[in-house]
Every structure is written in C-alpha cells, then in structure tokens.
Amino acid sequence: MSQRRVSMAMVAERAGVSGQTVSRVANDSPKVDPATRARVEQAMAELGYRPNRAARALRTGRSQTLGLVAQTLATVGNSRMLQSVAESAASRGYALTVVTLGAEAAIDQAFDRLRDQGVDGAIVLNEATALARDAASAGLRLVVIDSPPDDRFTVIGTDHAAGARAATVHLLAAGHRTVHHLAGPVDSFAAAERERGWREALAAAGVAPDEPARGDWGSESGYRALERMLRTVSPTAIFAANDQMALGALRALADSGRRVPEDVAVVGFDDVADAAQYQPPLTTLQQDFDALGERAVAALIARIEQGGDSSASPAAGGVLIEPRLVRRRSA
C-alpha cells in the first residue's frame, strides 16, 4: 500500500501557519522570520514532506537542477570532484545531471543536452574548459573548476602553481641540487600550472630545469615515463604531477634498485586516499576537494539567483585554494 503524499496543507496545520507561509519556506523566500521558518522546517521533517520539484519549477522558472560536465570521471580528481559537487548540491536542495565527453559527437552535444534538460546552470571540470567558453556565449550560467580567468564565467580552482612551488622548494631545502618533474598531459590546465610552479621554484633558486618526463595521469604512464628518464639521468628528487603517476614512479625506482627516499626523494600531488599506504608513504600536496565543490556550487547558485538573462549575468570573482604539503616518508 503506497504512503499518502504529505501536502503543504498538512505541514501548515502541524506548524500552525498558513499554506502561503509553508510555500515561502519551501521556496526559500526571505519573507519568513527565523522562528517561523524553524517551526515550519521542523514540521516538514516530522511529516517527511518533500517539495514537488516540478511544481516548484513552474512557479519559479527554475528546475533546481545543476549540470556537471567532465571529459571523464575515470581520474581520481574528477571522481572526487563529482562526489563533492553532488553532496554540496544535495545539501542545498538541488539535483545534479552529469555529462561526460567521451566522444567527439558528445562534445558537440553536451551543453545542448543540459539545456534540453532545463538545468539552471552547470559546473565544468578543467578538461572541458574550451567548450565552456562556447557554452557561456550560448547563454548557460557556468562555474568552471580550474581554468584561466575568463569574464564569461566564474573560476574556482586549486592554486596548482603554488602547490608545485611548495613541493619543489621542499625538495631543494632537503639539499637536492635540482628536482626532476614527472608532468601531466600537455592539454591539461592543472598539469601546465603544476609544471609552471616547478619551473618558477627552480628559477628562483638559480637552477636550470631539465625537460620533464610526461605521463597521462595514470600509474602505468608514470612507470614508463620514469623508466625513460632513468635511461639518461640519475635523479635524486622527483616531483610528480599527481599521486597515481608517483605510484608508478615508485615502482620504476624500486625496479631499478633505487631506494626511496635514501637514493631518490619523491613528492606527489592530490593526496589520494591510498597515498599514506604507498611504500613508502607518499609526501604529497593535498587538494581540498570538499572546499572546491562547496565553493563551486555556492558560486553557481549565487549566479542563478541573480536572475535575468544568463548570458548577461556578470561573472563573480574567482577563488583559488592553496593545497597543503603533507609530509610523509617518501621525501
């Protein structure tokens, strides 16, 4: 037997207020005093009231749905961002629609699909930034995570260059003459910023950098890139652009008979859940994915609540969150 749907009238009766007051609370109207709002929200919780999303969309012109666009969810960073954005959106009463750009056809259609589904705005992860510029021009409210500044959308990101400088300075301060870099893909904004920070730290120390080895973020690519590096140089310190490539580097060093950190120190980036369980436990830069997701969702909802033509909505100022060096035994 199905359970009867809880109505606004039932909530109003329980809270001792009018149906209009319940409606205002359900629609986050500021025209309700805090004590009354608390009483209505308590009645909603006690009765198990769930707002009718379709009815709200008709009244407000908003779907209470956000989009998220990513090239892939296979990388650790993107999967953690998805979780953070989903949790933050849900805490604000928003649903989330996810689009991944796995094929060329999907790239052309991704934002059309989001518009067809009536999303109020979208969060774009860094690999899809170029596409975001086209979408912003087409009138979709956007927040982009990790991108160069752009007045068409709000940018929220990790200060990748600052993190890379901190990693490089940490290794130089330990007495290493130079630091070799295991870089990410050439088309990644985050990888480019981490490489920039590494180069800047070496330049500040008066050290000319060797050309970095390069991987695709995966541990296998880290292993192969380090194998190639070891054919021509004997590094004593390595800064890897992410923890998964650092894991491959640790294996390549072990296979070559080098000890970490006695012979080669290694620092990663991201602080994945298993980084403390690597052998040895990995020194790394910790990204605050929870803060990134929270701020991205908050910035997007702020743009949505400005109202008016989305293509004319001004971009709010961006935010960069500096990662934290987590010292373990690898460096």
Score class of each variant (00 low, 15 high):
Gln64Asp: 07
Leu47Ile: 07
Ala9His: 11
Ala103Pro: 07
Ser29Phe: 07
Asn78Gln: 11
Arg50Pro: 00
Thr60Val: 12
Thr72Ile: 04
Leu66Tyr: 05
Arg92Met: 12
Val85Ile: 15
Gly61Phe: 08
Val11Thr: 04
Gln42Met: 07
Val40Cys: 04
Glu41Trp: 02
Leu101Ile: 11
Ser18Gln: 10
Ala9Ser: 14
Glu41Lys: 03
Ser79Lys: 11
Arg59Ser: 12
Lys31Asn: 11
Leu101Gly: 11
Gly48Thr: 12
Arg37Asp: 01
Thr65Asp: 03
Leu68Thr: 04
Ala38Phe: 06
Gln71Gly: 13
Ala89Ser: 13
Glu41Val: 01
Val17Asn: 11
Ser91Trp: 06
Asn27Ser: 09
Ala90Pro: 03
Ala70Glu: 05
Arg37Tyr: 05
Tyr94Phe: 15
Glu41Tyr: 01
Met44Leu: 09
Arg14Gly: 01
Ala103Asp: 15
Arg39Thr: 07
Leu73Phe: 11
Val85Asn: 04
Tyr94Gly: 02
Gly102Pro: 06
Gly67Glu: 04
Gln71Leu: 07
Thr21Ser: 10
Glu104Cys: 08
Gln42Phe: 02
Thr75Cys: 03
Glu104Trp: 11
Arg53Val: 06
Ala54Thr: 13
Gly16Trp: 09
Ser23Phe: 04
Ala95Arg: 09
Lys31Leu: 12
Asn27Pro: 09
Leu68Ser: 05
Val76Ser: 14
Thr36His: 06
Gln64Thr: 02
Leu96Phe: 13
Ala43Thr: 03
Gly93Val: 06
Leu101Pro: 11
Pro51Met: 06
Gln42Glu: 12
Arg14Ala: 13
Arg24Lys: 15
Glu41Ala: 03
Asn78Val: 04
Ser63Gln: 06
Val32Cys: 06
Gln83Arg: 15
Ser18Tyr: 10
Leu73Pro: 08
Gly102Tyr: 11
Ala57Ser: 14
Asn27Lys: 01
Gly48Met: 09
Gln42Val: 00
Thr60Trp: 08
Val17His: 12
Thr100Lys: 15
Val76Thr: 14
Met81Val: 10
Thr97Pro: 01
Tyr49Pro: 03
Arg39Ser: 10
Gln20Tyr: 02
Ala74Arg: 14
Ser29Met: 04
Leu73Asn: 04
Asn27Gln: 10
Gly102Ile: 13
Ala105Val: 14
Leu101Cys: 14
Glu104Ile: 14
Glu46Gly: 03
Asp28Arg: 03
Arg56Leu: 08
Arg39Val: 06
Arg39Met: 02
Ala12Cys: 10
Leu68Trp: 08
Ala12Tyr: 02
Thr72His: 14
Gly93Asp: 09
Ala12Asp: 04
Met10Lys: 02
Val25Glu: 00
Gly77Asp: 09
Met10Phe: 02
Thr97Ala: 15
Ala90Ser: 14
Met81Lys: 05
Ala45Gln: 15
Ala38Lys: 13
Asp33Val: 08
Ala89Asp: 10
Val99Leu: 13
Val98Ile: 15
Met81His: 12
Val32Trp: 00
Asn27Glu: 01
Val11Glu: 07
Thr100Glu: 14
Arg37Ser: 11
Ala89Glu: 08
Leu58Cys: 05
Met44Ala: 07
Val22Glu: 04
Ser63Leu: 03
Ser63His: 05
Arg14Val: 07
Gly48Phe: 09
Pro34Asn: 05
Gln83Ile: 07
Arg37Gln: 12
Ala15Ser: 14
Ala43Gln: 07
Gln20Pro: 00
